[in-house]
Design a protein around this nucleic acid. Structure first.
Lengths: 195, 195
DNA sequence: CCGTTCATTCTACGGTCGTTGACCGACGGT
DNA sequence: ACCGTCGGTCAACGACCGTAGAATGAACGG
């Protein structure tokens, strides 16, 4: 038996190359979006030939589909207040580190129908749980607004890199957003009057 | 003098054709984004040859620049509460009708540097006024969050067409967002404790 | 009425893209 | 040691893109 790290077996080599390609694809799709990312660029970033990418993944669409992985982190049920806090925590997690996969979807969803679908179905379970937890007739609209807020913030922080949003700490952002989330997950006090 | 509508003069004809091209460009840029919109498609939609578009506008970039017009509606100064309300009113205006120009910028800004710049500079005056009106040290972050919320909502309503957001009336959306805007433009009560 | 301008079209060039298929050379089972 | 398998490269095709420039013909000014 050869030393375990001296010469990699063929299967190992293949998995390793595939992973290098997927990494490069994730990076480029997140940075440039679907259209501007070229298979040749992915291949070159991974140190291989463009033909190999086709050979392994079949097409650009399939490469994109396999590169973007959506962990879809789940939301615990509970009172509307608890759900708001869980949602804030989920946002906090997404504001630390850079999940290249979901950034790729976010970057591409406005110009690529497939990415748009992926975005929809990825957020759907969260959206449904959210809707179920909000005790008002317009729960679905409220949940959609929360989704819009979350993605707006992430897009401007990571994709557009608006300085004030990019520099802020996740805690700072979450603290400022907490009243928003609470007001959207909570029915209005029975007699509220705008001054 | 020929009848005013019998045979159009050459200048009239030109202005008319240019406007048809710009209309088609606005529609296509808003619908497909910068990359997927082709000069040939714009020309064909306007009923002219692609060469003519080049002849009139010089390049695809210049066509895009001229097609997207940013009215940049101004924000009156005032107390933070008044600014919040003015911002809500501005959002309401943008939620009725479909300003194809700004949708084109919004659709393209994630994949086109020029559109991103245009988006930044278009929102900048509003952002500055907003920052000036918020009486907290983190005013700039708060203003950025408000901007992110606004654009997130518009993007999901008009570009992604999430059903619950697309079907809702502007008033409904604004009413739900009002507490958000108020909490972001207002310093927190001196002793707030999250339960 | 003639020469010019100009709106408009046609054709074509150079480049890039996704994708294909032939080809090469090292690994691995027998 | 042989030979099929398979990771990987190379060259090319067809489509489409942005763009340039010549050609056409009708409107215009003198």
């Amino acid at each position: 038996m050869t030393g375990s790290n001296a010469r990699p077996t063929r299967a190992q080599q293949r998995r390793q190359t595939e992973e290098r390609i997927l990494d490069a694809a994730r990076r480029l799709f997140a940075e440039l979006g679907y259209d501007r990312t070229t298979i040749r660029a992915v291949a070159s970033a991974a140190g291989v030939d463009a033909g190999l990418v086709m050979h392994y993944f079949g097409s650009k669409d399939l490469l994109f589909a396999q590169a973007v992985e959506v962990p879809a982190d789940e939301l615990p049920g509970g009172t509307s207040g608890e759900v708001a806090e869980a949602l804030l925590a989920s946002l906090g997690r997404r504001l630390t580190g850079e999940p290249a996969g979901s950034l790729a979807v976010l970057r591409s969803m406005l110009t690529n129908a497939d990415a748009a679908d992926r975005y929809r179905t990825a957020g759907e379970p969260q959206l449904n749980q959210l809707t179920a937890a909000i005790p008002t007739p317009d729960a679905d609209l409220r949940a959609s607004l929360l989704s819009a807020i979350i993605h707006g913030v992430i897009a401007e922080r990571y994709l557009l890199r608006l300085t004030h949003l990019a520099d802020a700490s996740p805690e700072q952002i979450i603290d400022l957003l907490r009243p928003c989330f609470q007001s959207l997950t909570t029915p209005p006090p029975t007699s509220a009057k705008t001054l």
